[in-house]
């Protein structure tokens, strides 16, 4: 599924290297979590994979099912099955949430050589998926993320994920800004999407999200590299002892 080898990335405008040789291999249907202190490069990794500007890849590779991701435009990566749930979903005044979802869905279908979905079919689908995430008709009608609470924004990200049915989902600190109930709701949405053909990369600061979205593998990232990998217990260890011990081990 997702294969990252020795990935080196620097900021485009500054002489600052963020990722210093990241290796990661996620198989089909697996859920991996990345934890790590602030500034370790977790979010940068998610942005570089999804194609945001401002970064320069200076070495290494990232492929999705053998296809080189790094040379593709962001929209082509999406069509190839990559999805990033944003840490800070963007507000887009003037673009209706429904219009946005439908445009995105049909653009991806078109890119994959499928027929566009009819308005009626789309409406039926979006209503059903929205209901599961407790997203009401009003939220669907409003401009994308405008006036949404933190929780609503994150639920909206999961709705997009559910509609677009990607094969590789990256969740960038999806738990930030969520209360316990919202986190449960979002987690349930994510768990409902877990399947043999779909993999997840969950980036988080806190172990508690991983109580709800239980990972197969946990990686600890620090200073632009993965410094340790293990089972879900590794997250508990971090929660109890902090990163200091781990960082010390490596040093």
């Amino acid at each position: 599924m997702l294969e990252i080898n020795d990935l080196h990335v620097k900021l485009e405008e500054e002489d600052k290297t963020i990722l210093k040789g990241v290796d990661l291999m996620i198989g089909p249907g697996e859920v991996h979590a990345i934890m790590g202190p602030n500034g370790s490069g977790k979010s940068t990794l998610s942005y570089v994979l999804s194609g945001r500007g401002g970064y320069e890849v200076t070495g290494g590779s990232a492929t999705l099912d053998g296809v080189d991701l790094l040379g593709m435009e962001p929209e082509d990566r999406a069509a190839a099955g990559l999805f990033l749930a944003f840490q800070y979903p963007v507000e887009i005044p003037g673009v209706g949430n429904m219009t946005f979802l439908r445009t995105a869905l049909n653009a991806q279908r078109k890119a994959r050589g499928h027929e566009e979905m009819s308005a009626a079919e789309f409406l039926k689908l979006v209503r059903a998926k929205a209901k599961d995430l407790k997203i009401d008709a009003d939220m669907l009608k409003r401009p994308v993320n405008v006036g949404f609470s933190g929780g609503e924004k994150k639920r909206n990200e999961i709705l997009q994920m559910a509609m677009l049915e990607p094969k590789m989902c990256i969740l960038d600190e999806t738990d930030s800004g969520l209360d316990v109930d919202a986190m449960k709701l979002v987690s349930r949405g994510v768990n409902a999407l877990r399947s043999e053909g779909r993999s997840f990369l969950v980036i988080t600061h806190y172990q508690r999200l991983l109580d709800h979205i239980v990972p197969d593998v946990v990686h600890i990232m620090a200073a632009g590299r993965m410094i340790k990998s293990g089972g879900k217990d590794l997250a508990l260890e971090v929660e109890q002892n902090g990163y200091a011990d781990l960082l010390g081990e490596v040093a």
Partner: peptide, 20 residues
């Protein structure tokens, strides 16, 4: 970037924002 990350091609994304 948000629109493109959801699969909306560059020109179409720009037009959506223009209309908005």
């Amino acid at each position: 970037f948000y629109l493109r990350s959801r699969g909306v091609p560059l020109a179409e994304a720009q037009d959506l924002l223009v209309l908005a």
